[in-house]
């Protein structure tokens, strides 16, 4: 009998503990979800506000854009990017906002959108590219912002 009671108490304990852990994890995930794009973006921001800091070799932005397959969905006139599923990005730098109007059109916002578009536009058709190194995402964002 007492063994049974012990089992019961054990179960209750385990249940509480595991739901707590789950909640904890969910919290972490949530926190993680919003975090990463912001951090490195701000650290890189001063660099880009400095006009001489665009040390990217010429064409590196476009070549990253093409090599990672963005051209499969987007068009940039005058390049081999001729996709039609996503919006035409030929002059994206001069738009007033991006991501269906939810983000200001800054280099930093473009970088955040490229990394996790689903955070800003639920049901978005574009996949996340947050597995790319932050520096590459920054370079692509800088290139896109310059397309006026």
């Amino acid at each position: 009998m007492s063994a049974n009671a012990g089992l019961l108490v054990g179960f209750a304990f385990w249940f509480l503990a595991s739901s707590w852990v789950a909640a904890e994890e969910a919290g972490h995930r949530q926190a993680k979800v919003v975090e990463p794009p912001i951090e490195p973006a701000t650290s890189a921001a001063p660099q880009s506000s400095n006009p001489t800091a665009s040390q990217d070799p010429p064409g590196i932005g476009l070549s990253l854009f093409l090599s990672n397959g963005c051209g499969a969905c987007h068009t940039i006139r005058g390049t081999e990017a001729r996709g039609t599923i996503g919006p035409d990005l030929s002059y994206v730098g001069s738009r007033s906002a991006i991501g269906a109007g939810v983000l200001p059109n800054t280099e930093e916002a473009i970088a955040r959108f490229v990394a996790r578009p689903d955070l800003f536009k639920p049901g978005v058709k574009m996949p996340a590219f947050d597995m790319l190194p932050q520096t590459e995402i920054q370079t692509i964002a800088r290139y896109l912002k310059a397309l006026q």
Partner: peptide
């Protein structure tokens, strides 16, 4: 060219050409 009306991207954008990831 993919299938634009069904949102299928062109495979060539990622799988063809020596300049890809």
């Amino acid at each position: 060219a993919g299938i634009p009306e069904r949102n299928v991207p062109a495979c060539s954008g990622c799988h063809l050409g020596s300049n890809k990831n």
